[in-house]
Amino acid sequence: MSENPSEPETGIPAIDATGLPDHMSEAEIRESAARERREKLRMFLTNWQGLTGLILVTLFFASAIFASWIAPYEPNALDVPNRLSGPTWEHLAGTDQLGRDTLSRILHGGRVALKIAAIGVSVSLVVGLILGMIAGFGPRWLDSLLLLLFDTVRSFPTIVLALATVALTGPSLGMVLAIVIITSIPQYARVARTATLTLRNTDFILAERSLGASMGRTLLHHVMPNVVGPLLILAAMDVPVVVTVEAGLSFLGLGVLPPTASWGTILNEGYLVIRDAPWMVIAGGIPLILTTLGFTFLGEALRDIFDPRMGKGR
């Protein structure tokens, strides 16, 4: 529960910037930084996991953004004579009970996933970053209070929390977002807090403080740039979780509501006709797996390259 602030092993790579040897000129420093960047790029390009991840993630973004242009049909267009048809040249991934084209629905479902992932991850990252820095830099009692809050949220199994809330408010996209954000804030906040605690007593922060910099300025200009790196890696690894929560809740009928196409609603409709139309749950699951695999591969490759210590103890 407590991270010793004076512990030298921090896992925050950027702090080293202050510890450069004095005899290096500015040009030399710049060149060594450029060399390091080239080295990291080379490491990334030779890492098959990272490359596969990058390709899958690009595919996810591209198919979601250009869904309307790629999709052969409108997602809700009915083709009643061909209802529950298997994969054919006309409908590559078959059709559902209403004769809607599964492939088109999958492509449009990617949009919902992208929307939730983008909003959910960025909001929880920003809020987690702020709360974590406050916990790490603020007074002791505030730190304990925030930690307790994070622990409480974390000790609520996500789906159970979602079920309890939806029981009262009814399903909606906003509810899914709220659940995603609330449950993922603590992990960002914890990482940000640990990083802030280790920065708190470093020389350059102490110097900044003694020059009379305000708390806000110190946090915004000096602490944040050093904390945000690990959080971005965490964000890449958080996308699969968010996408899975959305698909899962929509599968249970507690998230995105029909007739809107989402991977979860496709799986739900497929589950109901699993005996007659197995291609729906197969086709509906593949993009989900590719997306989660892609972001996991990418996140792990980035972590291994930029922040090798973070991988330990996970």
Partner: peptide, 18 residues
């Protein structure tokens, strides 16, 4: 391990059922 961690468990349930 990367593969099994990345696959959502509810999808494993549905596919195992299928």
């Amino acid at each position: 391990s990367v593969g099994t961690i990345a696959v959502p468990s509810f999808l494993v349930s549905i596919w195992a059922l299928l």
